[in-house]
């Protein structure tokens, strides 16, 4: 059974303020119970991982970007960005 404390802890981990904890407890629990069917799988099954070829990576080059990204921001002035004060 998923508990209210667990949901609060998860919400803190993913940094989301949630108000209706009860609702999420019920919904997450329902889905987790469904995921429990996975537990019937024999745990000796080998896992295939997808190996990526590492020889054909793109060259590590600087690609100049001509447009000014700062101009796309809403609160910018010259080369400054206005941002909230974070403590």
């Amino acid at each position: 059974m998923v508990t209210k404390e667990e949901i609060q802890r998860l919400a803190n981990l993913i940094k989301i303020e949630i108000n209706e904890t009860e609702k999420y407890v019920e919904q997450v629990d329902k889905v987790i119970r469904y995921f429990d069917t996975l537990d019937k799988i024999s745990s000796t099954e080998e896992i295939f991982s997808q190996d990526l070829a590492l020889e054909n990576l793109r060259p590590d080059e600087h690609i100049p970007y001509k447009e000014k990204l700062i101009e796309k921001l809403k609160n910018s002035k010259g080369t400054f960005v206005k941002a909230p004060k974070l403590i």
């Binding site: 998923v2 667990e6 949901i7 998860l10 919400a11 981990l13 993913i14 989301i16 949630i18 999420y24 919904q27 997450v28 889905v31 987790i32 995921f35």
Partner: peptide, 11 residues
């Protein structure tokens, strides 16, 4: 989205 993030963090 919140539900799936909670589930993902749980598993």
């Amino acid at each position: 989205v919140i539900r799936r993030m909670l589930l993902g963090t749980y598993v």
